[in-house]
Each structure stands twice: as C-alpha cells, then as structure tokens.
C-alpha cells in the first residue's frame, strides 16, 4: 500500500495496471458466472451476431471468385485478422465508449474517488465471459482460411501473423481510448466515433483495393487503420502495395501501434484534465 505513494517506474506502473485490470475483470467474471447457462447462451448469441460479417462475405463470394483482385481465402484472412484484433480490443476496452454516459450521469465522480485509474475501472465494468463469443468466428475463419492461402510459408510470414494480430489489437485499443477521450470534451460524439471503432473494424475486413484511393490514403496516414492488417497482410500474401508505399511500411504496424497508444494516452490525460477543470 505504501509503495503506491512513492513514484514507481513506468514498468512497475504498467505491471500494476495490468494486474489491477485482471483482478477487477476476474471479479466481474465471477459475478457473472453465477448464471452459467445464461452466459453460455448469450456468448453463442454474440458469436452468431459477430459471424454475420462472415456470412456477408460468403454471399459475395457465392457470386464471384474474386473481389477487387482478391480471392475468398485472402479476404477471409483479412476478415479474420481484423475481426480477431478488433474483438480482443473490444473485450479489453470496448466499454470505454460509455464514458460520455458516465459524464452525463455524474457517475464518473464516483470512479475518480477511487485509487485506480478511471480508464481501468470503465474498461473492466460489466466484464462478462459473454464477450468472448466475439472471437469465435474470426478464430474459426482463420483456421480455415490460412491453409488455403496458397503462399510459401517462410519464417518471416509465419512470424508476421501473430505480430500483426498483436499490433492490430494495440492499434484498435488506442482507437477505443482515443474515441473515449473525445467524449470528455464532446459529450455527444459517441455516435460519430463509432465510425472509427466499428467502422474501422468493418473497413479492415476488406482489401483496400475495394476503396477509393483517397479514402485509403486517409485510413493509412490520418487514422492508421491500414496498419491493423492491410500492410502486414500484403507481406504475408506476397502482393504489391497499390499505394506504392516503401517496403518497410509492411513491418511498421508495431511502431504505428505504439504511436497510436501514445496519442491516445495524451488525449485521455487531456480529456480528464478538461473534465476536472470544468466539471459537469
């Protein structure tokens, strides 16, 4: 208890944040686990809803073997990597989109008088095993699509798959926090920031060749969603970049993830400072 009052290093603080997160999430899971049948059914329902996107892609490919130059297996690979990264980020941080509600209803104050970051408190709120249903469709799809990609699996390509999943999750995580931070200032922005979170998730399920060039530039450089899976996937699939970006951008996702998180952290702190100076 006393160690919290002295300023610990960044690593120690990070470890502590993660352990606090896990403790709180676990407490919520245990509370939810009192109704196991209900939870299982709801997880199935969540999986079903999440699977609709796959069904949509399957309908498209029932009509044509290639879309914008990409085969069904390739698009499903993009879907799987995007949806898995997004689902994990959603499980971990998705409830932060309720920040505006907490501000409007004054419940944020109750979070601020506790010795844990309000970000962790909001992110773990209502943490339920039900959410894990969301990762079922992308995991199944990846298991089916990866063997059908027909690429030569060099060690670099093999290593790239987990790396892109991790960086994609980090990028989406940063986007969640960034969108939440905006709500400190613009209380009604939630409806619009969904375009970045859920919209970003849908966008990255398709090859960028589907979209107009300027649109792709926007999601590459402004909101770097193209680094969630598109750039690394080009490397895995051995394809040229339609935007002709230099080769190293295929490997830039981890760095982009770090930058997005840094921006999100600054935005969150700024938002919290704004709230604490203006109240509600």
């Amino acid at each position: 208890m006393a160690s919290a009052d002295t300023a610990p290093g960044i690593a120690a603080r990070g470890t502590r944040a993660v352990s606090t997160y896990c403790l709180l999430a676990w407490t919520w899971i245990r509370a939810a686990a009192q109704y196991p049948v209900s939870i299982t059914l709801l997880a199935l329902g969540t999986a079903l809803t999440a699977g609709l996107d796959v069904a949509g892609i399957m309908v498209l490919f029932s009509r044509t073997p290639r879309i914008a130059g990409f085969s069904a297996a390739e698009v499903l690979f993009l879907y799987g990597t995007s949806a898995l990264a997004f689902s994990v980020s959603d499980i971990l941080l998705g409830t932060t989109e309720r920040l505006g509600e907490h501000v409007r209803e004054g419940t944020l104050d109750a979070l601020l008088v506790r010795p844990v970051s309000p970000l962790i408190q909001i992110a773990t709120e209502d943490f339920t095993p039900r959410r894990f249903g969301r990762i079922v469709p992308p995991v199944l799809v990846l298991a089916l699509a990866i063997p059908r990609l027909g690429v030569a699996w060099t060690p670099g390509r093999v290593a790239m798959v987990p790396l892109m999943l991790a960086s994609g999750t980090v990028i989406f995580g940063g986007v969640w926090v960034l969108c939440a931070a905006v709500q400190f200032v613009l209380l009604n922005s939630h409806g619009a920031t969904k375009a970045l979170t859920y919209g970003g998730a849908t966008l990255t399920q398709y090859p960028m060749t589907v979209f107009a060039r300027d649109f792709v530039r926007g999601v590459t450089f402004v909101v770097p969603l193209a680094f969630v899976n598109w750039e690394p996937a080009l490397y895995v699939l051995g394809r040229p970049d339609p935007l002709n970006l230099p080769g190293w951008t295929r490997f830039a996702s981890p760095v982009v993830g770090a930058v997005v998180c840094a921006v999100a952290a600054v935005a969150w702190r700024g938002g919290l400072r704004h709230y604490r100076s203006t109240g509600n």
Partner: peptide, 12 residues
C-alpha cells in the same frame, strides 16, 4: 457482497 468485493480489489 460482490460490489464490496470489487471495492476490496480496487483498494487492495
């Protein structure tokens, strides 16, 4: 009771 358990975790 679960609410209080959460508080216990928050304050360690």
């Amino acid at each position: 009771r679960d609410s209080l358990t959460l508080v216990r975790r928050l304050y360690r």
